Amino acid sequence: MSFLGFRKWPTPVAKPLWPFVAASTVTFYLVSKMQDLGVRSEEYAQDPRNPYAAQISKEAHH
């Protein structure tokens, strides 16, 4: 018996969405790694427009 159209057990939400969550996690990780590699590349590490230039130069002296 359903009350106002609701079933006794809720429709599964997380179980059918696990591939999308896994793919989103992998995509986020890979894009962040590519961004980090791009920011730290020799061509852009010393560029004054790079917001991480000061941090990269401090790490390079260690």
Rank of each mutant, 00 (worst) to 15 (best):
M1W: 07
S2K: 11
S2Y: 06
F3T: 10
F3P: 00
F3Y: 12
L4V: 03
G5N: 02
G5P: 00
R7N: 09
R7H: 12
K8F: 03
K8H: 00
K8N: 02
W9Q: 12
W9K: 14
W9C: 00
W9G: 00
P10M: 03
T11C: 07
P12F: 00
P12N: 01
P12Q: 01
V13W: 07
V13L: 10
P16M: 12
P16G: 07
P16D: 06
W18Q: 15
W18F: 08
P19R: 05
F20H: 13
A22Y: 10
A23K: 06
A23W: 04
V26E: 02
V26F: 07
T27L: 11
F28M: 08
F28V: 13
Y29C: 11
Y29Q: 03
Y29A: 13
L30D: 01
L30G: 03
L30Y: 01
L30V: 14
V31Y: 03
Q35M: 07
Q35N: 06
Q35L: 12
D36K: 08
D36A: 15
L37F: 07
L37C: 05
G38V: 02
G38W: 12
G38A: 09
G38K: 04
V39G: 01
V39F: 06
V39W: 01
V39T: 15
V39N: 04
R40A: 15
S41T: 08
S41C: 05
E42T: 12
E42P: 11
E42A: 14
E43F: 06
E43A: 11
Y44S: 08
Y44G: 00
Y44E: 02
Y44R: 11
Q46N: 15
Q46F: 07
Q46C: 04
D47T: 07
D47M: 00
P48E: 09
P48K: 08
P48S: 11
R49Q: 09
R49K: 12
N50T: 05
N50K: 10
N50G: 03
N50Y: 08
P51D: 07
Y52N: 03
Y52R: 15
Y52P: 00
A53V: 05
A53W: 01
A54G: 11
A54Y: 11
A54W: 09
A54D: 14
A54R: 14
A54S: 13
Q55W: 10
I56T: 06
I56Y: 11
I56L: 13
E59M: 10
A60E: 15
H62D: 09
H62N: 14
H62Y: 06
H62F: 08
